[in-house]
Simulated assay, not measured.
Amino acid sequence: MDERVTLRSHLDRSALQTPLHGAALADVIKAIASASIELAGLIADGPFAGITGRHGGINSDGDQQRDIDVAADEMIRRALRGTPVAAVLSEEAALPETLRPSAPFCVAIDPLDGSANLDNNISVGTIFSIRPRGNDLLSTFFEPGTAQCAAGFIVYGPQTTLVLALNARVDVFMLDRHAQEFVQTRQAVQIARNMPEFAINASNHRHWHGPVRTYIDECLSGISGGGDADFNMRWIGSLVAEALRILVRGGVFLYPADARPSYREGRLRLLYEAHPMALIMEWAGGAASTGRRRILELAAKTPHQRVPLIMGSVHHVRDVTAIHDRIEPMFDNSDAPLFARRGLFL
């Protein structure tokens, strides 16, 4: 790009285009970005900064909690307390924390997604969702994902990258470590339509329900099996890294429900993982589904509700949902031969 566009200047410009609470929304995003810069430094320093990776107990949703999870949560909460945020729901807390009850926005956030990956020096991230405060503060979090007015994620990897969905478009910013500010590197991102790549944890093949197994088997069969392309498989095991790859390259990511007891409702959290990712995907010209329903149409019933997530190009997500539609629900948990006759390549 010829012009150096910083996140701050981008947000200031966006605020002028958003008459209702535009400046307030910009302030919330700036605070999250500022906290992420501090967190990026802490992650990079790791043990030199006293971060050992040791387990600190179990969080409210039953996941193992590490010292870096606690530190990330504290950083972001501290940053948000000085902004027009009415309440914040974090993965690390059982219930939303009320900050300024009359403020115009509520935030749902995963302060550090994938912290276990730090042991292997794999990218981790922060995911956030912002929505206007409703008349009833707590019920704001239980509205459909379409209520979101902004969302984004930060990837802490070889570079620190911030992806922002705002004003119906998606832009990407990279942290300039010397200036300590985010600078725009991609604007108005659009997901490639036909990149033949899928990402899924293939070790769970035996647990998958029929539609997912059918889709992946047909991707692997490729042209020789009657398909349009030979697919490559990718699997990083980091949600933010997988999402960034889709925005940059295209393809599809699947984290489905499966037959295991703790995976029957899916594993990713609706409010601060699936909802924001779905908004980003749709505003970048892609799609996000459970396999049967559009993610943004779902409303959470509990703060940490889990869901399946299939996201990426519209073309690929529609292929997955088409197989779900064709296979009768009564066969979802079986290996019935019917699957072989009802895939994409009829």
Rank of each mutant, 00 (worst) to 15 (best):
residue 212 V to M: 11
residue 117 N to R: 05
residue 165 A to W: 00
residue 171 D to L: 07
residue 218 E to Q: 15
residue 166 L to I: 06
residue 200 I to G: 03
residue 129 S to E: 02
residue 124 V to Y: 04
residue 203 S to R: 15
residue 231 F to D: 03
residue 113 D to W: 07
residue 228 D to S: 12
residue 118 L to E: 01
residue 185 T to R: 07
residue 186 R to L: 12
residue 173 F to C: 04
residue 191 I to K: 10
residue 170 V to N: 02
residue 144 P to F: 05
residue 230 D to E: 12
residue 119 D to I: 02
residue 126 T to L: 10
residue 199 A to R: 15
residue 159 Q to L: 11
residue 169 R to W: 03
residue 199 A to G: 12
residue 227 G to M: 13
residue 184 Q to W: 00
residue 170 V to S: 05
residue 103 A to E: 00
residue 148 Q to D: 10
residue 168 A to L: 09
residue 201 N to T: 06
residue 127 I to F: 04
residue 212 V to Q: 00
residue 161 T to C: 11
residue 153 F to M: 08
residue 145 G to S: 05
residue 182 F to L: 00
residue 195 M to P: 02
residue 179 A to D: 08
residue 187 Q to A: 11
residue 120 N to E: 07
residue 172 V to K: 12
residue 182 F to Y: 12
residue 125 G to P: 06
residue 222 G to R: 07
residue 179 A to G: 01
residue 208 W to A: 01
residue 179 A to N: 02
residue 183 V to R: 02
residue 195 M to S: 11
residue 131 R to A: 15
residue 223 I to A: 10
residue 136 D to S: 15
residue 141 F to K: 00
residue 230 D to P: 12
residue 120 N to D: 10
residue 216 I to E: 02
residue 213 R to A: 11
residue 114 G to T: 07
residue 199 A to P: 10
residue 164 L to T: 03
residue 168 A to M: 08
residue 189 V to D: 06
residue 143 E to A: 13
residue 183 V to C: 00
residue 133 R to G: 05
residue 163 V to N: 11
residue 168 A to H: 14
residue 205 H to T: 10
residue 177 R to D: 08
residue 118 L to I: 01
residue 188 A to M: 09
residue 154 I to Q: 03
residue 120 N to S: 11
residue 231 F to G: 04
residue 139 S to V: 11
residue 195 M to Y: 13
residue 161 T to M: 07
residue 192 A to Q: 13
residue 121 N to I: 03
residue 218 E to W: 12
residue 187 Q to D: 08
residue 226 G to T: 05
residue 109 I to C: 05
residue 204 N to W: 15
residue 209 H to W: 08
residue 136 D to E: 13
residue 220 L to Q: 14
residue 109 I to Y: 06
residue 202 A to F: 14
residue 218 E to N: 13
residue 138 L to S: 09
residue 190 Q to I: 12
residue 206 R to P: 02
residue 197 E to W: 15
residue 149 C to D: 07
residue 110 D to Q: 03
